[in-house]
Design a protein around this nucleic acid. Sequence first.
DNA 1: ACAGGTTGATGCCGTTTCGGCAACAGCTAT
DNA 2: ATAGCTGTTGCCGAAACGGCATCAACCTGT
Lengths: 312, 312
Amino acid sequence: MRFHSPAIQYFHAVRRTGSIRAAARVLNVASSAVSRQILKLEQEVGSPLFERNARGLTLTTVGEMLARHVMNVLQDLDRFRSDVASLSGAWHGTVSIACIESLTESVLPDLIASHRGRARRVNFATEVKGSSDVLEALSRGEADIGIAIALRHPPDLRQVALKRFRLGALVAREHPLARRKTVTLAQCLAFPVIQALPELSIYHLLQPLIAQLSETPEPAIQANSIDLMRELAARGVGVAFQTQLGINRLSRDSQLVFLPLDNAGSPVWSDLGIYVRAERTLPAFIESFLQELVRELGERERRENAAYPQVA
Amino acid sequence: MRFHSPAIQYFHAVRRTGSIRAAARVLNVASSAVSRQILKLEQEVGSPLFERNARGLTLTTVGEMLARHVMNVLQDLDRFRSDVASLSGAWHGTVSIACIESLTESVLPDLIASHRGRARRVNFATEVKGSSDVLEALSRGEADIGIAIALRHPPDLRQVALKRFRLGALVAREHPLARRKTVTLAQCLAFPVIQALPELSIYHLLQPLIAQLSETPEPAIQANSIDLMRELAARGVGVAFQTQLGINRLSRDSQLVFLPLDNAGSPVWSDLGIYVRAERTLPAFIESFLQELVRELGERERRENAAYPQVA
DNA sequence: ACAGGTTGATGCCGTTTCGGCAACAGCTAT
DNA sequence: ATAGCTGTTGCCGAAACGGCATCAACCTGT
């Protein structure tokens, strides 16, 4: 089913690979064919689309505009194909998800397992990244759905939902803080803490608050893995910080205790955003999963914030 | 600048004209070429796109899906072209507007004149239709912006804004009702009324209210032109009904008086919606005008509803 | 019922476009 | 300097496209 001019597809491949010869290898055609199609495109647009560096090609401003158009075309073609297929009763395809680590413990595996129980021919491709990388992958068309900390997002992305979860401290059951209902940052800093590295969004959430305090935290352990931080906390090494997302199940049968964090009497929130490309209509089977994801995250938000009601 | 496969463009022309030969005439090619491209498309999709009637072609379900995709592609291509052009400082193009008659007296001419004062190379194509025809023209890609009575709109359209204007009675200055501040429907029906025909949205707004009344209105005059109704009312022929939109200026130096309508103590609203195709990103120069349109309508809504404050 | 006008589809053929091969110039890193 | 990469360009065969004439099927008006 090849509707569109080869120029479109070749351009797309060149943009992704950053090289004409590499694109030709991917496309199983001669590099000369790719080169000519690009030249033809540039002639028709009336402006160069790539800057020819010695080591490959980089998009020009006009090239980026065309890249946006081509991505819109190809993604909408995918949707059309999926629509036609589902007309024949074939509900299948691959949902590509880019998300931050917080989701991997419980939310995402639960949802995917449940969804595949009902729609066995829908496949999933997941990739865990930092928040900004999630948004970039989405912009580049390398993922269908992105879940990231809700900071400013580029205008080519659409925030489908915004859910806020309470940030808290994670300590071992035997930890002196474990008997409290809530903790303040200052109380935590009296003990060894497991600091998140700047790659993790937790760093950017806590850093401003720490800066407000007079005392500097005792440098204990730094890590860039939420999983590792959790396991360290369970072993009593120190106090870790993260959202409650996905701790529910773990804290029951493990050594971990989650303590909601209070700062100046009010909770510390971590805002989670669900994103898709703005200029795109999702295939039905992706849209369906997206709705479930939004619903489930909303459910968790409600449940977890009810478990730890806000202090007045 | 012809990026896309001829099949795409031919299909689009055939869909619009409803005939292969007519499409060929428009495209300045032989009908055989068009026929073959359509057949090729159908072979690649694996399903017929048109039903061959003796008098032309009609889209099948799959054909409509492809039509949606093709429209997305071509409209996005337009946007890309416009983006590239405005990069060279050339801010031009044509804004195609489909709207109902209420806007023609003041809102639309004012806005277009003002906009062209600032951007002289932006052209306009306006078409006045009934509400449902406005939405249809938009769905078919024959207009960029649609303004219609806000009823249920098809899912392929997006309601950019919703503004409500008060419905009222229009009478000549010498009319017995002219001295009142507001009127009820029952009071109006005591006089000869100028009834809107079902093609006008006013009919559908008033009919349910009239049905609630015990008395049936005295059949006086029926019309399907807002302009005509207004002129008739000015000549004292009867009571006309319409929104205040565009009466402001007229009522000053003419024989017309606008009386807000009250029904069971509450105003009667006419909801005006501004629509665009949902699966589309507008060219910058259209988006710019759209924002002005929304702002201006919001301004009028505020001003007019302030002039006739709601009765308690 | 019949003729005249439609409609879309097809076979034939010249033109255009596309793609593969090989060679080229330019650059980088070893 | 050599080796390896880049994108570009002639040359040529293959595939796709478009135009012309023709065909069968259908509607319409007489």
